[in-house]
């Protein structure tokens, strides 16, 4: 018969100790330190034999256990009237009890999660404000034709006129402003591509500010971004962003 070793994975020294206590079928209060220490050391040496890295926390606990065990073997000096030192065994028991509470609470959370992760909600609806739309109800064919003619005229005259040289100053846009704009957009649409945010002929500065705004939003946990490979489009999805953030 082959030698079988099966090591369970523990979340830390406290977790391991709780396991050993449960295996021994005793209450946390009644732990026998010498027995538990032996089993604890046993586990560590099994890990060592299997060449598993032992986290330093496990070593600290080993030292604590040995300390408690050794101090029990030695005769205690008669306590002077000075403040009594806290009993390390009692301290350990307290820690184990505390830890167990949160371990159980974690289990409870897990069970809730299994139920409630089945619950879905929808993204906010995009309700378009149509009040400012142009009204076309009274427009006739003639109106359209006339407008077209006027436009063509304008184009012709502007072509004839002299070339004017002007310096176009970059429009200053603040990062804060751009974040607000993007937040409003993303809270409505849910997802958007980066190329859509800078699709028109924006200046380089504008693109840079947009990108910085995006980084800031990622940092705030408002959106999640994905890029399948370098230089490809960036997919932006709403994550933690709320209506109130976008206002």
């Amino acid at each position: 018969m082959g030698y079988q070793v099966r090591l369970e994975v523990f979340e830390g020294p406290l977790d391991l100790l709780l396991h050993l206590i449960a295996k021994a079928k005793i209450n946390i209060e009644d732990i026998s330190i010498s027995e538990i220490t032996a089993q604890y050391m046993d586990y560590l040496s099994q890990m060592q034999a299997l060449d598993i890295d032992i986290a330093s926390e496990f070593m600290v606990m080993a030292a604590t256990l040995l300390h408690i065990k050794s101090s029990k073997l030695l005769p205690k000096p008669v306590q002077q009237s000075e403040e009594q030192e806290p009993d390390p065994q009692q301290q350990l028991i307290e820690r184990l009890k505390q830890y167990k509470k949160y371990k159980d609470a974690g289990e409870w959370l897990h069970e809730r999660y299994m139920v409630y992760s089945n619950m879905y909600s929808k993204l906010p609806e995009e309700v378009v404000d149509t009040a400012e739309d142009v009204k076309f109800s009274n427009v006739t064919k003639q109106d359209i034709a006339q407008t077209m003619m006027a436009l063509l005229d304008k184009k012709n005259t502007s072509q004839q006129s002299q070339t004017v040289v002007r310096n176009i100053k970059p429009e200053p846009i603040s990062l804060h402003e751009r974040i607000n704009q993007l937040a409003a957009l993303i809270v409505r649409r849910g997802k958007v591509l980066f190329s859509q945010l800078v699709s028109r002929k924006f200046s380089r500065l504008y693109v840079v500010v947009t990108f910085l705004a995006l980084l800031e939003m990622v940092n705030r946990g408002w959106v999640a971004v994905q890029q399948s490979r370098p230089f490809s489009d960036i997919f932006i999805q709403r994550k933690g962003l709320k209506w109130k953030n976008s206002r």
């Binding site: 979340e11 949160y102 371990k103 609470a105 974690g106 959370l109 897990h110 999660y113 992760s117």
Partner: peptide
Amino acid sequence: EQPLSRACLETLA
């Protein structure tokens, strides 16, 4: 969605 690991659940608790 993947359930949270035990380490995460304990920390969250």
